[in-house]
């Protein structure tokens, strides 16, 4: 079943030096329950697509349909709630002046989820679900490690009860061991909650190990979309071959990551 459908999605930025086509005529379907990786170098339009899917950037033309409903420029709370984001930098994505519990609670308050009196308990449960002790909720982000902060970000997104998570380089700021742990957590959560992931990254080692399908972007255009194994073993587009060619064999870092994932650290 198709959960998210992009149809002729285009974003053009008007700049003093002329229009910049950040995303040109992109159409693709994301199946419910899959993990679709979006790869491409900087400036390929990955983040612009993510922002349009999240509804914080309006498309110049084309449409986005979620769960068979076309999303208009002004989304309803019910629609917004189902698509959430986990950002790259876990330090900047949490407000340094608020407790992590307050950050996780935000979605509960905005969407009025559960009784008011039970929301702190719900926050503790959300932290618990990502492997953090519930009593950590009063702590400031500065007192947490990078991996813990990223878990808080995930808990904050999950508290809204989403169906689709946009993961914008969720592990690139973390070291290999912590990266593997966060990826395993994401895998568990996907299975447990029936989530769908759009995994934006430039790290092909991660893509090869977590994604079901891969969409390759180059300067705002979709150059190739296919099963992960097909993309890595028999890339069709020249650009994909070039991208894959940058990491021809499984290197030590990926081997390390793969071992960690297999061990289930």
């Amino acid at each position: 079943m198709t959960l998210l459908a992009l149809n002729g999605l285009t974003k053009t930025f008007e700049t003093p030096t002329g229009p910049v086509h950040a995303v040109s005529d992109v159409s693709l379907n994301v199946q419910a329950g899959e993990c679709l990786a979006i790869v491409g170098e900087s400036g390929s339009g990955k983040t612009t697509i993510a922002n349009m899917i999240l509804g914080i950037l309006a498309a110049t033309s084309g449409e986005i349909a979620f769960d068979r409903q076309t999303l208009s420029a002004k989304r309803s709370a019910k629609q917004r709630r189902r698509i959430q984001l986990v950002q790259q930098n876990p330090l900047s994505s949490l407000n340094p002046k608020r407790s992590i519990g307050a950050s996780v609670r935000l979605g509960l308050d905005v969407y009025d989820i559960g009784k008011k009196s039970g929301r702190w308990t719900a926050v503790e449960a959300a932290l618990d679900a990502v492997g953090l002790p519930g009593n950590m909720r009063t702590r400031a982000p500065a007192s947490l490690s990078g991996g813990q902060r990223q878990r808080v970000s995930i808990a904050r997104a999950l508290a809204c009860d989403p169906r689709l998570l946009v993961l914008d380089e969720p592990t690139s700021a973390l070291d290999v061991l912590v990266q593997a742990r966060v990826l395993l957590l994401l895998n568990d959560l996907r299975a447990k909650h029936g989530l769908t992931y759009i995994f934006i990254t430039h790290d092909l080692a991660v893509v090869r190990n977590v994604a079901d399908r891969v969409a390759v972007f180059q300067s705002g255009q979709l150059v190739e979309l296919g099963e992960t194994s097909q993309i890595f073993s028999a890339p069709k587009a020249a650009y994909t071959r070039q991208l894959i060619g940058a990491v021809p064999v499984v290197d030590a870092a990926e081997l390390n990551l793969r071992n960690k994932l297999a061990e289930g650290v």
């Binding site: 917004r80 950002q87 949490l94 935000l106």
Partner: peptide, 17 residues
């Protein structure tokens, strides 16, 4: 421009919040 503002916007918090 900080990530936490983007996070609050994605969740759908109001401008006042």
């Amino acid at each position: 421009e900080e990530g936490y503002v983007l996070a609050a916007e994605v969740i759908g918090a109001g401008a006042g919040h």
